[in-house]
């Protein structure tokens, strides 16, 4: 069994990394990161662009290895089990750790409804049908704060939605498979301020049920939505602390330099 990895937290985190490093070919983009993510908590990962924060996030559901030449070492535990252990299937891992990307990625040939159930349909005959399926769609869309806007046009193409709605649809799609953790990779980077605000409110709602990890280059956003913040610089985890502490009293001078805008 894995020991708790985050000194500040008494209970065991839902998801945790230990000595996690990530590579593209020979170049190391994340170095020995040890970090925990707990239920009912939003953890923000911040840092200048190119610091490896997206790569770190993609290691948490084994998406990193889908890039040719990419690899990772170290341990990532989900409920105490190492998801990189031999015999663990990345496909199963990704059903427990959902992910939403920088740009909305609705499937353009599917309707709104089919987008929500896309992750379930993969299950084939085990997928919910009929009224059950409708319940799942409604539940996920409500959860993603999109239901009221789309309930009358579930059969329409997902492409017809605005960028912000598309992004919330992608969140609903990720929620429909009932993950224990959801990873948000700069989810508002391509959205207008109003849509950004809606997604941020949604993030607050999400953490009522599950662990949320959000990568953002926007420090104000991290301050607004997260409970804990981790600062990453050139692949190294510089500091992690409750968000208030990190932004008001950073321990490391590099963190202070970053949050006061001296670089990045």
């Amino acid at each position: 069994m894995i020991q708790p990895v985050d000194e500040d937290a008494p209970e065991r985190p839902r998801l945790a990394t230990r000595e996690l490093s990530a590579f593209f070919g020979r170049s190391r983009v994340v170095s020995n990161v040890t970090l925990g993510f707990r239920d009912q908590e939003v953890t923000a990962i911040i840092g200048p662009s190119g610091c490896g924060k997206s790569t770190l996030l993609r290691c948490l559901n084994r998406m990193h290895e889908t890039v040719p030449g990419a690899s990772a070492t170290g341990i990532v535990t989900l409920d105490g089990t190492d998801i990189y252990a031999a015999g663990v299937d990345p496909i199963a891992v990704r059903r427990h750790v959902g992910m939403v990307f920088q740009r909305p990625t609705p499937f353009p040939t599917m309707s709104i409804r089919d987008n929500v159930t896309a992750g379930l349909k993969i299950l084939g005959r085990h997928a919910p049908r009929g009224a059950d399926a409708e319940d799942v769609v409604e539940g996920a869309l409500r959860h993603a704060a999109l239901w009221d806007e789309v309930k009358d046009r579930l059969g329409e193409s997902a492409i017809a939605l605005s960028g912000g709605q598309q992004q919330r649809l992608c969140i609903a799609r990720a929620l429909a498979i009932r993950p224990q953790v959801i990873l948000l990779d700069e989810p508002t980077a391509s959205l207008d301020p109003l849509s950004t605000q809606k997604v941020e409110e949604l993030v607050y709602q999400l953490k009522q049920d599950i662990a949320v990890v959000i990568v953002t280059h926007n420090m104000q956003q991290a301050a607004r939505v997260s409970d804990r913040t981790a600062f990453l610089l050139m692949g190294d985890l510089v500091e992690t602390a409750p968000t208030n502490t990190l932004f008001t009293a950073p321990r490391d001078p590099r963190t202070e330099a970053y949050i006061t805008g001296r670089f990045g």
């Binding site: 496909i91 199963a92 990704r94 059903r95 499937f107 353009p108 040939t109 896309a118 349909k121 990720a174």
Partner: peptide, 27 residues
């Protein structure tokens, strides 16, 4: 690539990714 990523992140196998995301997009 984002379409492929989106399917994989939902826990799709490679074939499911091709069938449900890649081929429909290029239909």
């Amino acid at each position: 690539r984002s379409q492929r990523d989106a399917a994989l992140a939902l826990g799709a196998t490679k074939w499911e990714m091709i069938r449900d995301a890649v081929v429909p997009y290029a239909r």
